[in-house]
Simulated scan of single mutants.
Amino acid sequence: MAAVAVSSSNPPAPPPKDYRDPPPAPLVDVGELGKWSLYRAVIAEFTATLLFVCVTVATVIGHKRQSDSCAGAGVLGIAWAFGGTIFVLVYCTAGISGGHINPAVTFAMLLARRVSLPRAALYVIAQCVGATCGAGLARALHGGGHYERHGGGANELAAGYSTVAGVGAEMVGTFVLVYTVFSATDPKRKARDSHVPVLAPLPIGLAVLAVHLATIPITGTGINPARSLGPAVVYNAGRAWSDQWMFWVGPLAGAAAAMLYHQYILRGAAAKAFASSYLAHFAA
Rank of each mutant, 00 (worst) to 15 (best):
A5P: 09
V6D: 06
S7R: 13
S9I: 11
P14V: 09
P15M: 14
D21G: 08
P22K: 07
P24H: 04
P26E: 00
V28N: 03
G31K: 03
K35V: 05
W36I: 15
L38Q: 00
Y39M: 14
V42I: 12
I43C: 14
A44C: 13
V57D: 08
I61Q: 02
Q66W: 04
S69W: 05
A73N: 02
I78Q: 10
A79T: 10
A79N: 04
I86C: 08
I86G: 02
C92G: 06
G95R: 13
G95Y: 07
G99H: 12
N102Q: 07
T106W: 03
A112T: 10
L117Q: 06
Y123I: 13
V124G: 03
C128V: 12
G130P: 10
C133N: 05
R139G: 06
A140V: 15
L141S: 09
H142Y: 10
H142W: 14
G143T: 03
G144D: 08
L157W: 05
T163F: 14
V164L: 15
V167W: 01
A169M: 03
V176L: 04
Y179G: 01
V181N: 07
V181E: 11
K190D: 14
A191T: 06
R192N: 12
H195Y: 12
V196C: 10
L202S: 02
L209P: 00
A214S: 09
A214K: 01
P217E: 08
G220V: 08
R227M: 05
G230H: 05
G230R: 02
P231L: 10
A232G: 05
M246E: 00
M246W: 00
F247R: 01
V249E: 01
G250T: 02
L252K: 04
A256P: 08
A257M: 15
Y261W: 06
Y261H: 11
A269V: 13
A273E: 11
F274D: 09
S276F: 10
S276V: 13
L279D: 09
L279F: 05
A280E: 12
H281A: 15
